[in-house]
């Protein structure tokens, strides 16, 4: 049993080391930032995963195994987030991915020209980036107060009167429209 586990562990560690080096070679051989990201993701998921599997098999069911699992979980989650942020920042900064043109040659292409909706998405701020309009400090209370009062008065009238009017009023235009059509 121990030998079987050792064998599996060997296989996992060697496989993990292989994929880890493959990712590093890809990091150097790939032509632009986006393909390099793709290469690194191989080593950061499969490579790290297999290396950890090899270590887990050696550790058995211990506290060490729990720590290893936590490390891998954190790395898988944060690695994906960091890569996503990197890609978005690179696109936003105007990095142009190398894409094949009609003849098959690699050309730096602006992705926004190919996919206009991508430009819209890049230009639209994320929900977390939207700046809430903060009123200027001294004028703020008055402006707020004025709009507050105005709003209340305007609201008050429809609220107070409508019970009688709302029905006929809302029905009136509607029926008129229907009649007209």
């Amino acid at each position: 049993m121990g030998q079987v586990i050792d064998l599996l562990s060997w296989a996992a560690l060697l496989g993990g080391g292989f994929f880890y080096v493959v990712g590093a070679i890809g990091l150097n051989r790939m032509p632009d930032i986006f393909t390099r990201m793709h290469a690194v993701s191989v080593s950061e998921t499969l490579g790290v995963g297999l290396l950890t599997l090899g270590m887990l098999l050696q550790a058995g069911i211990t506290l060490v195994a729990v720590k290893l699992i936590i490390i891998v979980a954190v790395m898988w989650v944060t690695g994906a987030v960091a890569t996503h942020a990197l890609a978005r920042a690179a696109l936003h900064d105007g990095e142009k991915p190398l894409l094949a043109d009609a003849s098959g040659a690699l050309v730096a292409t602006d992705p926004v020209e190919l996919f206009p909706e991508l430009g819209v998405r890049l230009a639209t701020p994320l929900k977390s980036e939207i700046v809430e309009e903060e009123p200027a400090e001294e004028e703020a209370p008055e402006a707020l107060a004025e709009t507050g009062y105005g709003g209340e008065e305007e609201d008050a009238n429809p609220d107070a009167e409508p019970p009688g009017n709302a029905g006929p009023d809302s029905a009136g235009p509607d029926s008129a429209n229907r009649d007209g059509r």
């Binding site: 690194v40 950061e44 290396l51 990095e95």
Partner: peptide
Amino acid sequence: TAFDRLLAANKIGVGAIMLLAL
């Protein structure tokens, strides 16, 4: 580009963790 360096630095960080564990 700085993004390439950042990607490589990120990988160095992961490598340091793996080295530590191994």
